[in-house]
Simulated assay, not measured.
Amino acid sequence: MTTYHRGERAVQLRAGVLDRADHAGRSIGSTIPAVAARFLAERRTLVVGAADPGGRLWATLLSGEPGFVRAADERTLEVAARPAPGDPLAAVLSGPAEVGTIALDPAGRRRMRLNGRAVPDGRGGLVITAEQVYANCPKYIQRRSPLDAPSPSPEVRSEGSRLSTAQQLAVSTADTFFVATAGPDGRVDASHRGGNPGFLAVLGPDRLRWPEYAGNSMFMTLGNLELNPAAGLLLPDWETGSALLLSGRARVDWSLPEGGRAVDFTVERVVELAHATPLTWTEPEFSPANPPVPGAAR
C-alpha cells in the first residue's frame, strides 16, 4: 500500500523514480517522534499553508519565542500564534482547516513538515492534529541565524493582483520561498524552495518561473499540482521581517533538457505584510547544493 495519492504517483512514474519514492515514503509517519518534538520546540518560526473559502492557496509565517510550537503528544502540535488581521489566512484559521506546515532551521540547515487539521485553541493559537510527519534533506537551505528586532504588529502594506516594480525586484533577488499546494482530498502541503538569487525568475508582473531541483523523489508539490493547479507562495524578507504572500495557479513544464522540470506560476493575488515577524536574519551562506543560475553574474 502506498502513502501517495494518484497525482504524486503519476509524477513519480513520469520522472522514473517509483522505487526511490517508495523508499522515501517509508519515512512518512502520522506521529511526532521525540527528535521531531525537540526540533519543533526550538523553532522561532513556522510556515503554514491553507486554502481560503474561494479555494485559493496561501502560505503565511507565524513566529514566537522558542517553545511557541510544541508537541503536546505524538499526534498533537500546539502553536501559540495565529495570523494577524489582514493576513489572507487570518479568517481561515479562526476555524477548522486543513493545513500544511514546515518548520525551517536555516542556521542548522534542517527542516521538517507536518500536515494535518487545525482548530483554534481558544487562546489565540492553533491545535493541529498530525496526519503526515516527515523530515527533508538539507539541500538548498541558505544558512542564516535569527536576530531579534523590535517591531510593530504585522499589517497589510499593499494588496493587488499584480506585482509592483519593487515587488518584482524582491522576487527576482530571493534565495528562498515556500509553496503551499493541496491534494485531491483537500489536504494541504507546505514545502521549501531555495537556490541562488535569480532562481525564481520574474517573467512579468503576473508571471514567475522556477526550476525544480532534484530532491527526495516524493514529488508532493508537483503531485498536488498534477491534480490541482492552485498554489500559494510565501517570500520572507530576511532583512526587514516583512513578507510577500502570493496566490495563483501553477503548471509544471516537463520540456527542459535532460529530464529537467520547471514550474510556471501565474500570480492572481498579492498581499504584502509589513512586520510579518519581529525577527531579522544574518546574511546568508548559500547552500553548496545550489545549482548556478543561468545568466546570473558570478
Rank of each mutant, 00 (worst) to 15 (best):
P96A: 13
P211F: 15
V133D: 14
V156W: 01
A180V: 07
V119F: 08
T101Q: 10
H23M: 12
A230T: 13
P53K: 06
L234A: 04
V35F: 14
D148Y: 13
G108Q: 13
M1R: 06
V47G: 01
G241R: 06
S153Q: 13
R9G: 05
G122P: 14
A84L: 05
G16L: 00
F178Y: 01
G86K: 00
A166T: 15
E268N: 01
E131K: 11
A243C: 04
R162Q: 13
S27W: 15
G95V: 07
A97C: 00
Y134D: 00
D87P: 00
N290F: 08
L279F: 15
G67N: 02
G54M: 12
I102V: 10
A37S: 07
A118R: 04
L89T: 05
H5L: 13
P284G: 07
P284T: 13
P278D: 04
S242M: 06
L235G: 07
L77W: 02
I128S: 10
A103Q: 14
G232Y: 11
H23P: 05
E42T: 04
L169F: 15
A174H: 03
E268V: 14
V271Q: 15
P83Q: 03
W254Q: 12
R113E: 15
G29C: 14
A262N: 13
L89Q: 09
P152Q: 14
R269Q: 15
S161Y: 15
A296T: 05
F39S: 02
D237R: 06
V156N: 05
R162N: 08
S217A: 05
T45G: 00
G223M: 14
S151N: 11
G116E: 11
L227N: 14
Q12F: 01
E283V: 10
D206H: 13
R43K: 07
D237E: 14
N196C: 10
V92S: 03
P288N: 10
D19K: 08
R43A: 09
V270N: 01
R207G: 02
A130L: 07
S217T: 13
R144W: 02
A51T: 10
S94A: 11
T101K: 04
R251A: 07
G204W: 10
R6W: 08
V202R: 04
L57K: 08
I128P: 08
P211K: 12
V69C: 09
G223D: 00
P83T: 09
T31P: 00
V188S: 08
P197A: 07
G95T: 09
A276Q: 15
A118Q: 02
H23N: 09
R14V: 12
L233C: 00
R207M: 04
T45H: 01
S151Q: 08
I102W: 02
P106H: 04
W238H: 01
E258N: 10
W210G: 06
R249Y: 08
L57P: 11
A90L: 07
V127H: 09
A274V: 12
V69M: 03
V179G: 05
Q12Y: 02
M112S: 01
F286L: 09
